[in-house]
Amino acid sequence: MPEVYTSNKDKNIKQELTPSGEVRHHLPGHTHNPLGAYCFRPDNVTFETQDQGEKIVLFLRQHPIVNLPWIALTILLFFAPAILINFPLLSFLPANFQFIAHLIWYLLVAAYAVESALAWFFNVYIVTDERVVDVDFINLLHREITEAKIDNIQDTHHAVGGVLRTIFNFGDVIIQTAGTAQNIEFEAVPNPASVSRVVQELRLEEEQEKIEGRVR
């Protein structure tokens, strides 16, 4: 049976969300920076449970500005022994023990910095054309991966509050899922309005596919 009517709006959404070839390199939000916090249609990103043919639409991390507190604290802790040189807290120890105590201090600072950096780097949110995935690197001994199918999403909303979040345009995106499935929260992601819009459009597209019987 010939196709009588196809929605132009639907075609536009599909083209916008899953562009092919060179087109996507010119899209706003597309970047090749592996440390980027917002990437629309990334080129080199894959994840463990990705299905064949599943396309990543958005790859997100927390806004880089959230790293500022731990970087500032690391710098402060790094220079603390030099700052506290007039307060000889370790003077009761022999010189060689003092030296090792200083090295242990720097190891502890390094542990704090490495864990904070890894937590930011590996805490990622992925939106594909089939589902949303939240990879939480809670600490070195605990990681959690939550995912929800696009057709299980009921609603999305975003919240931007506070001076820094307003200036740098980042905030939380809350994705409500159907039934007992856990809600997914993208914390402190850049352009939350745009993220929310993309998820909504994917949801609408998935509904359209369901109606038309094109569900994978």
């Binding site: 592996p34 990334p42 080199n44 990103v45 894959t46 890894l118 780097f121």
Partner: peptide, 10 residues
């Protein structure tokens, strides 16, 4: 483990 879970080219 994490670089196996998510690959970003880094």
């Amino acid at each position: 483990l994490m670089t196996e879970t998510v690959k970003v080219g880094f």
